[in-house]
């Protein structure tokens, strides 16, 4: 394959040995070297270090010398009465997030794409993208203030409009956690998520729309029959990517919104890994829990890819 390409690009040059090829390209390897070194040290050595999940890590003996304990840490995790709850929380938070945050940017992009007043279109895009640039820290700070029972915006508004009689402590409420998490994600990233769809829509042939107009198709019909089919390949790819990351639900926001009172829904595997590993220094145990999470995620990723490659034979390409 590679040799075939080689022959195509400079057909006149006789085939050289692999070694000569490598030497000829030495400068590229010099450019590649720093990245490869960093990746080996900070990506691959930690992967090798995952074996501490099966050992009783101590600093003196290190990654490879600590005593082998087999599945002890996994047994401890599954023996914990909270483990099922954590797995459930992780999957539910992720699933609900995808369910809500996935379709909204698509609808939004279709609508924005229909706007004729270009100035209004630009300005609304600029404003809708803006929250994406706010850090998770600031977002969670804002949420904590807005949801506070002491003069928080949501409570003041709720009382002013007569929805609630007395202030509700939303930030500590386990039943409100997922709603808060997802609603704030929509606020922050729905606009940003439209970019990829809008740029796909902008490549749609304008004459298609003109022809449809002449045939008497109204705006909604044109969206249904021209725009949406154009978006389907992108939608499928985006969907694969979100399901492929199902178990990697955003740790940062869950952690920053977590209080001792809402743990019933806010404690996910990632926050537990951090708590056990960094705060309690249970290195081996934390690594085992994290490894479990990664393995589940990889199984999901492979499964979703399989399903989609089957589907895609039918629906696109």
């Amino acid at each position: 394959m590679k040799k075939g390409k080689q022959g195509n690009t400079n057909a006149a040059v006789p085939k050289e040995s692999l070694w000569k090829q490598v030497v000829k390209h030495w400068e590229f390897y010099v450019l590649l070297l720093p990245g490869i070194l960093v990746t080996i040290i900070y990506k691959y050595i930690p992967i090798y270090g995952i074996q501490i999940a099966f050992r009783d890590y101590n600093a003196v003996d290190g990654f490879f010398g600590s005593a082998w304990v087999g599945l002890k840490w996994f047994q401890r995790f599954f023996g914990n009465y909270n483990s099922v709850r954590m797995i459930r929380n992780t999957i539910l938070l992720s699933l609900y997030s995808i369910l809500w945050t996935f379709p909204i940017p698509i609808i939004l992009a279709l609508l924005i794409n229909q706007i004729r007043q270009k100035r209004f279109q630009r300005v609304s895009q600029t404003i809708l993208y803006a929250p994406h640039f706010i850090s998770v820290m600031i977002l969670c700070g804002m949420l904590r203030i807005f949801l506070s029972p002491y003069g928080g915006l949501i409570n003041i508004l709720g009382e002013a409009l007569g929805f609630i009689r007395e202030p509700v402590n939303l930030i500590d409420s386990a039943s409100a956690f997922r709603t808060i998490y997802i609603a704030s994600s929509i606020w922050q990233d729905a606009g940003w998520g439209t970019i990829i769809y809008i740029s796909t829509l902008s490549s749609v042939d304008a004459s298609l729309h003109e022809a449809a107009k002449v045939d008497g198709a109204n705006a909604i019909q044109r969206i249904m029959h021209i725009d949406i089919p154009e978006l389907i390949p992108v939608i499928v790819i985006q969907l694969i990517m979100s399901f492929g990351n199902l178990m990697n639900v955003g740790f940062e926001k869950a952690y920053l919104l977590q209080t001792s009172l809402n743990k019933e829904t806010s404690e996910i595997i990632a926050t537990y890994v951090y708590e056990q590993g960094m705060l309690k220094a249970m290195y081996s145990f934390s690594t085992a829990v994290s490894l479990f999470n990664t393995v589940v995620n990889i199984i999901l990723l492979v499964a979703v890819n399989k399903i989609c490659s089957k589907l895609s034979d039918v629906s696109f390409v």
Partner: peptide, 24 residues
């Protein structure tokens, strides 16, 4: 024309999906 181009990409792409995790 770079030899081992594919190998290098695989080397990188693996790190997108698999990592050592927090503690390691």
């Amino acid at each position: 024309t770079l030899p081992f181009k594919k190998t290098i990409m695989v080397f990188y792409v693996i790190t997108m999906y698999f990592g050592g995790g927090l503690i390691p």
